[in-house]
Nucleic acid binder design. Structure first.
Lengths: 155, 155
DNA sequence: TTAGGTGCAAATCTTTTGCAGAAAG
DNA sequence: CTTTCTGCAAAAGATTTGCACCTAA
């Protein structure tokens, strides 16, 4: 934990940025909630527990900065808010998402299944892949048990 | 063209919706720009050529409706606006995206490479796949020729 | 005729920005 | 000290909504 913060501090400083109290608190929240895909608003509420003076704008600025440094990944599930994922860069660990259109749950595939496809992209399209994103939408195992067949209905 | 509109009209009517002048104009714009990923604002400007009275809110409402009917797919590239893609449902044609982080260009892979992966998701996760989305971020063939190595710099 | 649609303007929501004061190195 | 940060409030965008008036079927 402390060592990961130290590492991020180095990354910041090597680019001329400072590790402020607020930034450290934000990073700690990210580390403590690695499993989740928190929005800036979610982060704000959690960070306030550690640094009550912090403003929402600072959270946005910090997440933006960490995003540029590739410490976090900014993702968008199309629900109107950006979410942030800590990047496990050491393991180059990309995960994929299973989004249930019925209950809204989001499960994860923790492996990276795209190695072969990335090679194909490089070979066939001369495109150098840096990152990728794969989401599946469908019905999760919990909902598919429930025999729930509702049709599209007018609002 | 006309037949595709007719089909969409059927889809609307089967759910109790009407094919208004504005909706038809919107659908025509979608058909004429199948290759692009237009935002609601883009759509609005193009639709106005055919139906000058239309309001932006109607474009949003129409796109939302077409999205519910799975006529279009709402996608989000993280640039702050939602974009809409006409769904080629007859061929179940899902394409993938190659997004260049250098020049911002977006190319497409017009095939569906995920068949085997979808089977794996169903088998290993008991998740019934309805749709998917795959984007690669990286350097496109145009930019990789240009020897452009800039580092992250403070704003 | 009548449910569903529309335009307009106002309201919401997320994210960004300007600025004067605060703090890290 | 000096440069980078921060909080606050205001601004900026994108999208949604309320409402009184239309219109497709």
């Amino acid at each position: 934990m402390e060592e990961r913060i130290e590492k991020i501090k180095q990354q910041l400083q090597s680019q001329g940025y400072k590790l402020t109290h607020q930034r450290e608190a934000t990073v700690r929240v990210l580390l403590e909630n690695e499993e989740d895909h928190l929005s800036a608003e979610d982060m704000f509420m959690l960070v306030r527990d550690k640094a009550p003076e912090i403003g929402l704008a600072t959270v946005y600025r910090t997440l933006e900065l960490l995003s540029e440094l590739h410490v976090v990944e900014k993702i968008n599930f199309g629900d109107g808010v950006a979410r942030y994922d800590l990047r496990n860069d050491s393991t180059h660990h990309h995960h994929h998402h299973l989004i249930c259109v019925q209950c809204g749950a989001m499960d994860e595939i923790l492996e990276d299944w795209l190695g072969p496809l990335e090679e194909r992209v490089e070979a066939e399209y001369h495109f150098t892949v840096i990152d990728h994103r794969l989401d599946f939408q469908g019905i999760c195992h919990r909902c598919s048990g429930k025999e729930n067949n509702k049709s599209t209905e007018p609002k």
